[in-house]
Structure formats: structure tokens, C-alpha cells
Design a protein around this nucleic acid. Structure first.
Length: 912
RNA sequence: GCCCAGUUGGCGCAGCGGUAGCGCGUUCCCUUGACAUGGGAAAGGUCAUAGGUUCAAAUCCUAUACUGGGCACCA
């Protein structure tokens, strides 16, 4: 340590916290020490979390940062409580989302996946995945995540493929997967079917076209209303409600379908709402789920006019075939208008189902797909919820979760894309004919053989030529197995035995049904256990105006930029401190600034303590004689103890924001603003025993605060702990890394109501005097004399003993006492803690102003007094409120009364 | 249409039965040996509206309005 020119020792830390080097250093050391690797079997019940695997679609966003900051917080917290922890890292192949990222890249190269072919496409996907994984894992490490890096998993690697096949097989054998022809949600852009939850509904501006359908005999027919005129080419009936008097004699008649020219019947069906539109409904069984039902009830034909690629088919007629559905709509409307059949057009906003990946309108299409029967799977999941074996935090999610399970529909799991687990079913060409090779999704009732590899021969016809189901599984299928596939289920590994079921899942509510519910169902169905007994469901990170972040809005915040600018700890803390249960987070940069400042405050309070420990290490708190501690020591220890309890309580209840806030306020408002300032009195004094006591308390409280803060801010606390430990002497806790030192615990009970009360008096007096100084505009450097008068004997005695506190904090050179009723001449007055404080200011004070100031003060106190008086004079209150409450109100009343009287007295004296 | 959540100082949020708090912002003063990423002081709210329960309501109940969200949808 080199000396400074002025002879004082060089401070042990820089003046401001510089996060970058600190983060790099500790990331590397944690990794090198393999600090968060867990082996099965050791040390009691483990705390296990599987990461919600990010899709390999690019870099992480702020939402991931929040999710992982919360997990890391809880992992480190549990670890510090002495539990073995295991947090599994990994990524998800991400199906459609990832494939469309690749397709965009191909498009930029003027390529398509079809031009490339399935195999080459796969190869490119693999390469991309590899690159993307390392970016994502790197970001997680940068965030400080205490992941067990040796256990990294990917939803599409070999081990996970075993799990997926086994799961599919188990469901197949139990008759829970089936291939069926259904009206599915088809995304024209993605070229695949989607499950119901992958469709989002958006309110969009639309129109309602009223079209006249003439009767076959040439007479006037009904007018139908539709939002999708292009589908009329596939109409096979018009339906009306049987009770609708307007159409009573129409049912059973034939109509001439405009543009197409064919005859279609009018059918009567209860489904039709007479009040909507014209009360006559065009029926297109091939392109609308409800129309399909009507068609089935009335034995109607089905004419497919829109192909899976979104273009019109031959069946739509020569004039339209090949047009996109949008172009066909315009053409149909124009043609109808030309034919004089378009009665009118209305604006008609309505909700449109769109693809959750690409936002394009969904096309309902009839096709053969794989489904999972969900009802049977949902029942155990509901039971787990009802019996408390599975709990959601916050509990407000339980109802929506349950409602969703109760009305669950079968899950379409086949996707017509190339990136994913291929469906392990093979079809014999001998049995199904050549068509199975080219027109797979239209082949009715195809029966496949379940196998991972091509079967030897067909069990029916003995043929040896097979085609594999070209489809892949929904990416969420493999995700739903994640809590046990990461431990290589179905293999009965030691990991599976020790780490499964996991302890907690942390994720956002946007995938509650998509993922959380399905993991519960699959876990219960395949392993017989709830995969995690608790789930912490957090909100979404939005922009500062509360809008969803999206690339198109340009309001996306890049976590790396934030970490570079403010440091990882500040970034994490700002997310956690806003993560109140059930709330979305409006993310403003100003909130990270606040956390950055907090980190710096922490840094500097350690810097201060270090400066005072250098050379003379602190004694352990336990070894300090309690009689050597003075008021502020007892007070801060009481506050500290409360904070420890509160933080633990909040974290155990999964309320991290409240825990973070408690720590923030303890460190800043209590420790720094009051305790450190008061400790300075002794530290700068000459009495060695007093200095030692202050050092011991400073060291103990700071050290514990650092450890308690570590799960929130891992890097800075590690750095500061490393700097502090060598200076702590006997007070140092054993352990290398801070996470190994455990959570702070108190050897003794430091509850101290008396210290709280007495510090309260000191703080009140100090605040009142500071306020007085500011209001009088006294320069901060000007030392004043304070004369106190009145108050209880106890309060006087307290202030006499603690006059050093008051003097130091209000920059007073003297604090003396006057007889009640004596007021030093030319003085300003503050009233607090039941007494008056006079500050003599001969020549500096304008009595007119001083009177005015005190009058304003009096108005406030009068209002307060009136309120509290009304309360304690209310007989009902006295009769019915609890005694303690009455007592409290009385003492409040007395305090207000005293304050009031003192102000009045002072004013009277000033007026004389 | 049904269900849920929210509505608290300029902005963002706590509090959820006993006299309204925090962060950011604003105003004033201060480069004093941890920290100007700091210290001190101040201004600013009839806690959406209307009823009700209670000795006492931001907090419980009931309506209403607005804002989000979920579910189901009538073309």
C-alpha cells in the first residue's frame, strides 16, 4: 500500500464501482472451480431447477434476463442455506420459430429449404444451432447464472431423442395418440398445422359483404353476409334457422351459387343466429369449423377451394385457381359487383386468428394430423392442483390454469416442417399405395408402424417398402418432457433418481398453458410424479410505456447493452426489485440507473469500512461485550436482524421484489444514512475500545448484508466479500467463495425495542433541526448552538447522553438545556420529540419570517390534533376498539397536543 | 359474451382494516476525509366514481366507468 501525498493511507478500493473487470474475473473463477456442479447423492434434499430452455432463434432478450435472474436468485439463496442445488442449463430447438429464422436467412441468399433439400437444410440448422447455443449460454454466464454447466441439455440431442421416442411410444401404447382428420389451424406462411393455443386472436378491421344468392328457379333468393367472400366458391349450402319466419318457405329449396354456377340447397339448422347479418349463413364445410359441423349434420359435400399454400385450387374455378386468397377475395368481390349480386358492404371489426409465430391469419383446413387425447391427461393435473401437490405462485393463476385444463381439447402435435423430432411412424407403400409418398396428409385412415428405424417388413402385407411420416413433432412436445428428459429419462439414471422431481419452475405467464400445464400432464402421465411441486409465474418485461417489446415497434432492449452500460448486478437488481408477483414490468432505463447507484453505494460503504479496518481487523461480534455497545450499535443490530428475517420470509414466499426492496432500504436508509455517520464519531475519536466496538459492528453488519445481497447481486458482493474477508480478522466467516459462507445468521438475539424507541427520538430531533437549518437558509458549514427545553425527564436524559449524535448530525457545536419557559433571545425554534429546540441566531434571524414559519407549522399540527382528538373522543371508538389501539391513539394524541402547545407558546413569546 | 386483474403524488410502483410510502423526476442548499453513481431539506396525493359494512376503509362488500389480460366467439 503506497501512501498518498497527504500521508493518509491509499483507500483499498476505487472511488466508484467498475463492473466489467469484476464480472469477468469472477465468472472465470466460478467456472474454473466448477462451483455449481452437483453430483447425485450428496448432502440432503437437493433444490433442483430446470431452466426454461431458450429457443435457438438468436440472442436472449430482457424477458430471459428477468427469468434467469429470478432463478439464479433462488438457486444461490438455497445454496447459501446449505442445500445442494442443481440448476440445469439448456436450449430448445424451437421448431417453427427457429425454422423461420433459417428460412429468412435462406431467402436473403435467394434460396428456399425445398431447393436445398431436407438433408442439407438439416445440416445448416445444426450449424446455426451450435452457434446460437454458444451465444445463449455465454449470455447466461454473463448474467452470472449459477448453472451446472456440465449438465447442459438440448431438446433435440441424442438423449432427448430417446425421451421423445419413449414418450410417444408410451402414449401410443395407451391409445393416447392418434391420427385423425380434423379441421386444423393452418398457417399458410409457415406451411404447417398449429395447435389451438398457438393461435392468437387479434381484433382486426374487416368487412361484412352482403351477397345475393339467387334461387335455382331464377327467383330472388336470400342474401348472405360473410367476412370471407373468397370462400363462397367452396359453398355447398346456405343455412337458416328453422324458427326464422323470414326463411320459412326457403328451406329445402335450391339456390344457384353465384360465380361457381352449381346448385346448392338451403338447409335449416339451429346453429344459425337469426339476429346476425341477414340470418342466412353461407356454408363452406372445407374452410370453417362450424360449417364443417353443419355439413356433417346435413350430409353436405365439401369443396376445398384454398390449398395449403394459400392459393386457390382448381375446384375454385378456372377464373380463380392459382390466385392467392387475398387476390381471390378482391376478384370475387369485383365479379359479384359486376354481376349485380353485391347488396352492400359494411365495416365489421372482428377478431381474426393469427399464427403466434408469424402473425399471419390462420386458415382452417381439413387434414390428417396426429393428436394427443388430452382429457385423460388433464385429470391427474387437475387433481394435483386441487390436492396441493402442485402450487402456483402467485395463487391467482390457479383458477385460469384449472379452467384451461377443464375445457382442454386434443392437442395437434404434428407439424409440417423439417426442424424437429421426426414422427417415428412408418407406412407400408404396399398397403397404402404410391399416393402415400406424395399426398400424405390427404390419405385417409393410413395405419403406420411405430419404430425409430425403418421396419424390416410390413406386419400386414409383408412388404418391405416404407415411407416415414414426413412430419415432425410440435416443439412443445419435447419441451413438455424437459424436467425429466434432462436426466435422461427413460433411463433410470442416478440423476433422475436424485434430482427428479425438481423443486421449482420459474417462468412467465405467457407459456402457462403452452408449457407449464403440459409438463405437469406429461410428468404425471409418464413418471407418475408432479415434475415440480411449485411454479413461480412472473410477468412480462414491457417497454417503459407498458407496450410489449417487439422488433417491429423498435422498442426492444438488449440485455447485453444494459449490462455493458450499467453492470450485470445493477441490471439484475433493477429487474428483480420490480418483479412484484403477478405484475408486468415496465422497463425504463432510469430504473437501472437507480440500481447502478445502489451498487455504487454498496461499494463505497465497503470502501469506508475497509478504510477503518485496515491495520486493525475487527473483532467478531460475539466476542464484543454488550456493555461496550452504544445506542446506535444496538439500533442497527436490531434493524439488521429484522431485515434478515424479512428478506428470508419474502424469498420463501417467492416475493423477490419485496426482499430486494427491504435490503435496499436497510443498506441505504439505515446503515449508510444513519449508522455509518454515527459510527464515525467513535472511529474518529481516540478511545480504542470504542473504536473497536464500532468496527466490530460495522464489519459484522456489512459482511452479513453482503452475503444476504449476494443472490441478488452476485458479482459485486463476491468482489467486496473477497476484499473484506482478509481485513476481518476473527470476524471472518470460513469459506472461499461468498456463496459457500452461507446466509448470515445471528448468534444472539439483537431485538431491542428500547434502542428503536431511543433512536427514534434522536432521529426525530435531528430531522427537525436539519429542517430548521434548511428553512432558515443557514449555510451547512455554519456551526450552531442548540438549546433544548421541556420534554420528559427520560427524553432529556437521553439527549444529554446522546448529544454527540445530535451535534454531529446537525452540525451543532453545543447542545445545552434551558429551564422550561425560558427562551434564548433571537432564536428560531423546532418542536420535536416532545420538546422545543431553540437555535439562537442573533442578527441572522428575521422574526417576522420566523413567526410566519411557525404559524404554518402550527396549522399542520392543529389539523393533526383535530383528527386524533375526534378519534379519542368518540365513545364508540373507546368502547369497541381494542385496548392497545386506544392506548396508541392516546399517546399519539398526547404527542400532538404537546407539539401544538409548544408551538403556541413559542409563537406567544415571539409576539411579545 | 363469460371470467380475472388493475385504477394510489408528473411517471413507474409498494401498502391491502387503525393518522398515505418508495424509486425516478421537480425545487432549494451543499465538492465536510466512503460515495456528487453523493449528502441535507422541500413541494406534490380528498388512494377512479357512487353506495354499503365497521368504532375505524386506499385496504372488506356491491354496483359503475376506464385500462389490461385470459377464455369462448355470430358467418
Amino acid at each position: 500500500m503506497t501512501g498518498r501525498p497527504d500521508g493518509r493511507p491509499e483507500p483499498p478500493l476505487d472511488k466508484a464501482y467498475d463492473p466489467q473487470p469484476v464480472e469477468a474475473k469472477w465468472s472465470a473463477r466460478w467456472r474454473a472451480a466448477d462451483l455449481f456442479h452437483a453430483e447425485p447423492g450428496a448432502g440432503g434434499k437437493p433444490f433442483v431447477v430446470v431452466i426454461p430452455p431458450p429457443n435457438v432463434t438468436g440472442a436472449l432478450h430482457v424477458g430471459h434476463a428477468l427469468d434467469n435472474a429470478l432463478q439464479d436468485l433462488l438457486i444461490r439463496y438455497q445454496r447459501m442455506q446449505g442445500r445442494p442445488v442443481c440448476w440445469i442449463p439448456g436450449t430448445d430447438h424451437g421448431g417453427i420459430a427457429t425454422q423461420s429464422v433459417m428460412e429468412k436467412q435462406l431467402k436473403a441468399e435467394k434460396l428456399t429449404r425445398h431447393a436445398l433439400g431436407r438433408e442439407k437444410f438439416q445440416a445448416r440448422m445444426q450449424a446455426w444451432t451450435k452457434q446460437c447455443k454458444s451465444v445463449i449460454l455465454g449470455q447466461l454466464e454473463r448474467l452470472g447464472c449459477a448453472l451446472d454447466w456440465r449438465r447442459e441439455a438440448f431438446t433435440m440431442d441424442e438423449d432427448r431423442a430417446d425421451s421423445v421416442f419413449e414418450a410417444f411410444k408410451a402414449l401410443w401404447e395407451r391409445g393416447l395418440v392418434y391420427r385423425g382428420e380434423r379441421m386444423v389451424n393452418w398457417c399458410v406462411r409457415c406451411g404447417t398445422a398449429l395447435s389451438d393455443i398457438e393461435v392468437e386472436f387479434e381484433e382486426r378491421k374487416g368487412r361484412l359483404w352482403h351477397i345475393h344468392y339467387p334461387a335455382a328457379d331464377g327467383s330472388r333468393g336470400p342474401v348472405v353476409a360473410t367476412t370471407r367472400p373468397e370462400t363462397m366458391l367452396g359453398d355447398t349450402a346456405v343455412a337458416v334457422n328453422p324458427k326464422d319466419a323470414r326463411y320459412r318457405d326457403l328451406a329445402g329449396k335450391k339456390l344457384r351459387l353465384p360465380l361457381a354456377g352449381r346448385e346448392i340447397p338451403v338447409v335449416a339448422d339451429d346453429y344459425v343466429d337469426s339476429d346476425f347479418g341477414t340470418g342466412a349463413l353461407k356454408v363452406t364445410p372445407a374452410h370453417d369449423p362450424n360449417d364443417l359441423e353443419i355439413g356433417r349434420r346435413h350430409g353436405l359435400a365439401s369443396v376445398t377451394v384454398i390449398a395449403p399454400d394459400g392459393r386457390m385450387t382448381e375446384a375454385a374455378g378456372a377464373a380463380y385457381a392459382g390466385l392467392s386468397r387475398e387476390a381471390a377475395r378482391d376478384q370475387v368481390v369485383a365479379d359479384l359487383q359486376a354481376a349485380g349480386l353485391l347488396e352492400k358492404t359494411q365495416e365489421h371489426p372482428h377478431s381474426v386468428g393469427v399464427c403466434y409465430r408469424c402473425n399471419q391469419p390462420i386458415e382452417p383446413l381439413l387434414s390428417w394430423q396426429w393428436f394427443v387425447r388430452m382429457e385423460e391427461l388433464a385429470k391427474p393435473a387437475m387433481l394435483a392442483l386441487d390436492s396441493g401437490r402442485f402450487r402456483l405462485y402467485p395463487g391467482s393463476w390457479a383458477k385460469p390454469y384449472r379452467d384451461w385444463l377443464a375445457q382442454i381439447k386434443d392437442w395437434c402435435i404434428s407439424r409440417q416442417i423439417w426442424w424437429g423430432h421426426r414422427i417415428p411412424v412408418w407406412y407400408c407403400v404396399g398397403c397404402h399405395g404410391e399416393r402415400i409418398k406424395t399426398d400424405f396428409h390427404q390419405v385417409e385412415g393410413a395405419r403406420g408402424v411405430l419404430s425409430r428405424r425403418q421396419p424390416e417388413s410390413c406386419p400386414v402385407c409383408g412388404g418391405a417398402e416404407f415411407v416415414r411420416d414426413p412430419d415432425v413433432l410440435d416443439t412443445w412436445f419435447s419441451s413438455s418432457l424437459w424436467p425429466f428428459s434432462v436426466f435422461r429419462w427413460p433411463a433410470r439414471t442416478p440423476e433422475l433418481k436424485f434430482f427428479y422431481p425438481t423443486s421449482l419452475l420459474v417462468t412467465g405467464y405467457e407459456i402457462l398453458y403452452l408449457w407449464v400445464a403440459r409438463m405437469q400432464m406429461m410428468g404425471l402421465a409418464l413418471t407418475g410424479e408432479v415434475p415440480f411441486p411449485e411454479a413461480l409465474i412472473h410477468g412480462i418485461v414491457r417497454d417503459k410505456h407498458g407496450k410489449k417489446m417487439s422488433k417491429s415497434l423498435g422498442n426492444v432492449v438488449d440485455p447485453l447493452v444494459m449490462m455493458d452500460k450499467y453492470g450485470t448486478d445493477a441490471f439484475r437488481f433493477s429487474l428483480i426489485v420490480q418483479a412484484y408477483p403477478g405484475k408486468d414490468i415496465p422497463f425504463a432505463e432510469s430504473s437501472i440507473t437507480g440500481s447502478r447507484n445502489f451498487a455504487n453505494k454498496l461499494w463505497n460503504s465497503t470502501r469506508f469500512v475497509l478504510m477503518n479496518l485496515a491495520g486493525t481487523p475487527a473483532a467478531a461480534l460475539e466476542s464484543v461485550d454488550r456493555g461496550r455497545l452504544e445506542l446506535c450499535d444496538r439500533w442497527i443490530l436490531d434493524e439488521y436482524q429484522r431485515t434478515l428475517a424479512l428478506v428470508r420470509e419474502r424469498l420463501n414466499a417467492y416475493e423477490p421484489a419485496a426482499a430486494a426492496e427491504a435490503l435496499y432500504r436497510f443498506l441505504w436508509d439505515r446503515f449508510c444514512d444513519w449508522y455509518v455517520e454515527l459510527a464515525k464519531i467513535r472511529l474518529q475519536g481516540s478511545e480504542e475500545a470504542a473504536r473497536a466496538a464500532a468496527r466490530a459492528v460495522l464489519a459484522a453488519v456489512l459482511d452479513g448484508t453482503l452475503r444476504l445481497l449476494h443472490p441478488f447481486m452476485p458479482f459485486i458482493t463476491e468482489e467486496l466479500h473477497a476484499a473484506l474477508a482478509p481485513c476481518m480478522g476473527a470476524a471472518a466467516k470460513p469459506g472461499g467463495f461468498i456463496v459457500e459462507t452461507g446466509l448470515p445468521e445471528l448468534a444472539a438475539d439483537w431485538t431491542d425495542e428500547e434502542a428503536r424507541r431511543e433512536m427514534g427520538v434522536v432521529m426525530e430531533a435531528v430531522t427537525a433541526l436539519r429542517s430548521l437549518r434548511a428553512q432558515l437558509g443557514l449555510p451547512p458549514g455554519l456551526a450552531v448552538r442548540v438549546v433544548a427545553a421541556g420534554g420528559s425527564a427520560a427524553a432529556r436524559e437521553l439527549l444529554r447522553k446522546r448529544s454527540a449524535y445530535v451535534k454531529a448530525l446537525v452540525r451543532a457545536e453545543a447542545l445545552s438545556y434551558a429551564e422550561e419557559g425560558v427562551r434564548p433571545p433571537f432564536s428560531a425554534t423546532a418542536v420535536a420529540a416532545g420538546m422545543s429546540f431553540f437555535v439562537p441566531l442573533e442578527g441572522l434571524i428575521d422574526f417576522g419570517q420566523e413567526r410566519e414559519r411557525l404559524r404554518k407549522e402550527l396549522v399542520k399540527v392543529e389539523a393533526e390534533l383535530a383528527k386524533i382528538s375526534a378519534k379519542i373522543n368518540n365513545p364508540d371508538f373507546l368502547a369497541r376498539a381494542p385496548a392497545a389501539e386506544v392506548e396508541l391513539s392516546r399517546s399519539q394524541h398526547d404527542a400532538a397536543r404537546q407539539r401544538h402547545d409548544r408551538l403556541k407558546d413559542t409563537l406567544r413569546m415571539l409576539s411579545e
